[in-house]
Computed example of a mutant assay.
Amino acid sequence: MNIKTLLLDSNSKLIEYIVIPFLILVIAFILSKVLRAILNKFVTGASSKLNVDPTKYNFLKNAVSFVIFTLAIVVIFQTIPSLRAYGVTLFASAGILAAIVGFASQSAFSNIISGIFIVIFKPFRVGDLINIGETHSGTVEDITLRHTIIRNFENRRIVIPNSIISEQTITNSTLTDDKTCMFVIMSISYDSDIELAIRIMQEEAMAHPFHIDNRTQEDIDKGTPDVIVRLVSFGDSSVNLRASVWANHPTDGFAMKCDLHKSIKERFDKEGIEIPFPYRTIIYKEKKIADATTSNKESL
């Protein structure tokens, strides 16, 4: 073997063992930086809309770098023939370990994936008033990749895993507009004056400090009432009226609704509007049986 052949073999091994791996790592480094910058911009924007600290999602950027460099190492092992056999054994063992860890951490990963979906789709933000299914309701205090913290109306903190939230129907009262329409339903007797009852409900609603006029200019021009009261149904012993009353915030709306129940009831009592209650007729059959027995004895 001459010197030229040795130099060619040496150069080829230099390219194979040093140059190619170095280029692969450089490409991986550049790709990691680009993807981290894109992800950082996205997470920062999403976190500002969610009103949460973007540093809570730093692990996403680290995960991107980890995946890219792992793939780069796999490519390097596959490129160098002498390392290929060791690489197969190494990554096979790592795959088994990853499968065991993944199975053991299935619930944790499910919460993380659900947290990522919250970051992407933004169904609620910190400070939003939400209902989760039919069970929990309150104000969102914090959002992490594992769980969401809700402060309910009793000032208690409810920590709910994100995987559970992703499976529930979420009612967000403040996602785009804080204004809320409260339905105030009152029942009056069939003998009561319906027009008087409607007027009382409208007056009491418009007098409440939390009430707002939500009419458009077109509604005002058409003479649409500030508070619309409709007869919505007939009950067994009542006529059911529903007033639509607007407030600036769901919390104000709830307080207003409770106050209106009281003030309207007091006005109804004062104006002679009856709120009916069910009547029941009770028949004592024992007395009839006893009278029938006594009558039979006397006839004998």
Score class of each variant (00 low, 15 high):
K285M: 11
T169H: 04
L39P: 00
E154K: 11
N214F: 12
I38Y: 08
E16Y: 06
K257F: 06
E271M: 10
A92T: 15
K285S: 14
K56P: 02
V232Y: 06
K270S: 11
G95E: 05
M201V: 03
T148C: 03
A197C: 07
T135A: 08
C258D: 13
H136V: 09
E204T: 04
I220C: 08
M186N: 02
L14P: 03
E141Q: 13
L83K: 07
K122L: 12
G223F: 13
K41Q: 09
T89A: 15
V227D: 01
P54F: 00
I165P: 00
R230D: 13
F22E: 06
L260S: 03
G87W: 06
I15L: 14
R125D: 04
F234D: 13
E141L: 15
A85H: 09
E141N: 11
I100F: 13
K61Q: 14
T294R: 14
Q168P: 01
I149D: 02
F277A: 06
V239T: 13
R125S: 15
S163F: 02
S65P: 06
E154H: 07
L83W: 09
A108C: 00
T281K: 15
F210N: 01
S105H: 07
L90D: 00
T281N: 10
G235E: 07
S107P: 00
S65V: 14
Y284V: 08
V52H: 00
I150Q: 01
H249R: 09
N2M: 04
F183V: 11
N131L: 08
L35Y: 11
L196H: 05
F234H: 14
I273M: 02
E134T: 13
L241M: 10
K257W: 03
L14I: 14
E298W: 11
E274W: 04
T294F: 14
V184T: 05
I143S: 00
G133P: 03
N214S: 12
V101G: 04
G133W: 04
I198S: 02
N214G: 12
